[in-house]
């Protein structure tokens, strides 16, 4: 991570990390193919498409067909990356992902940008908050939600290296880049951003950095919060969850996703199976949101640093 976590130099969207990773893969391996459903620029697939037009398939506004065509291409031994807005892939093509990809056991990776409430002004139809719930229920599927642009780049490269399908969730929202190329990224292994003993915050994606800022605010109130970047939601890092459950006696999960079916569920399931420690699932509470800027929405739904700190503080009161 960067030397001073409180002073990140750059703010970039995680989708850019995907685009960079895909381009790197394309340069190294001529077996890497990419598809997009009329959103190649928005998903940053266009960097690959411009350089490798012969390995880029523009399928048009047809996400169901895209998943099937990707399956056919992967069937021929290719490593395939499919990109669309999360609202439509996996929002529209769950059956095709389930059968044409997962049940066919082919190496198709789904990159879904524009996830969560940070889609902002586009409104609730486009702010998909259920995609992780869908994807983590599928056999063979790996689910990754990178915390910043650099991690998204590494996640993309890691996804190509595993033979099972991966789901990579990104955002168009600019967020601080706090990891560095030297940080190790391993699917299924969370990384600790901040150690702590009172409460452990598990976060993924665009709200990860704000969870760190929340912990910094909590310190001023005498609360020592650990912050864990849980970039892989499936397979979830059970070892880290159990370790911090014991160490802190309270876990708060934070995500730009419904509290049903996301990281919160993955953590709660792990804890319920193995130990008895309270888990507070923070995110969007079973509702649709609305149009506004991303920062306004993060504030309204208590997913900015102040909101997260407030939530953790409330839970600390219940703990004691």
């Amino acid at each position: 991570m960067i030397a001073d976590l409180n002073k990140p130099e750059a703010k970039k969207p995680t989708r850019d990390g995907f685009g960079k990773g895909l381009l790197e893969l394309g340069e190294k391996d001529s077996n890497v193919w990419a598809l997009s459903a009329d959103v190649s620029e928005s998903t940053r697939t266009h960097w690959f498409a411009e350089k490798f037009p012969g390995r880029f398939i523009q399928v048009g506004v047809a996400e169901q067909n895209m998943a099937g065509v990707a399956s056919g291409i992967a069937h021929c031994g290719k490593t395939v990356f499919v990109s669309a807005f999360a609202a439509f892939s996996p929002g529209r093509n769950f059956d095709q992902i389930r059968v044409s990809v997962c049940y066919n056991d082919v190496n198709v990776n789904f990159h879904a940008s524009h996830s969560g409430i940070t889609v902002g002004p586009d409104g609730a139809s486009h702010q998909i908050l259920e995609d992780i719930a869908l994807m983590r229920s599928l056999p063979n599927m790996i689910v990754i939600s990178p915390a910043d642009m650099e991690e998204a780049r590494k996640a993309t490269i890691a996804a190509a290296a595993v033979k099972t399908p991966c789901y990579i969730r990104t955002s168009r929202q600019n967020t601080p880049v706090f990891t560095t190329p030297d940080d190790k990224f391993e699917i299924g292994k969370s990384s600790v951003i901040r150690e702590g003993k009172d409460v452990a915050i598990f976060a993924h994606g665009v709200v990860t950095y704000d969870s760190f800022l929340a912990a910094e605010k909590l310190r001023q109130k005498g609360i020592d919060a650990a912050v864990i970047n849980c970039h892989t939601i499936k397979p979830v890092d059970e070892e880290a969850i159990l370790k911090y459950a014991k160490q802190c006696g309270l876990i708060v999960t934070v995500e730009d996703h419904q509290v049903i079916g996301g990281l919160g569920s993955a953590v709660a399931e792990t804890v319920a199976d193995r130990c008895h420690v309270p888990v507070k699932r923070h995110g969007i509470y079973d509702r649709f949101c609305e149009s506004a800027s991303a920062s306004e929405l993060l504030q309204k739904y208590q997913l900015d640093a102040d909101g997260i700190a407030r939530k953790v503080e409330e839970e600390m009161k219940v703990k004691k």
Partner: peptide, 13 residues
């Protein structure tokens, strides 16, 4: 409805 899409992917390659 899924098979033709897979066949198209194979034929493209």
């Amino acid at each position: 409805g899924q098979g033709l899409s897979q066949a198209v992917g194979m034929a493209i390659v």
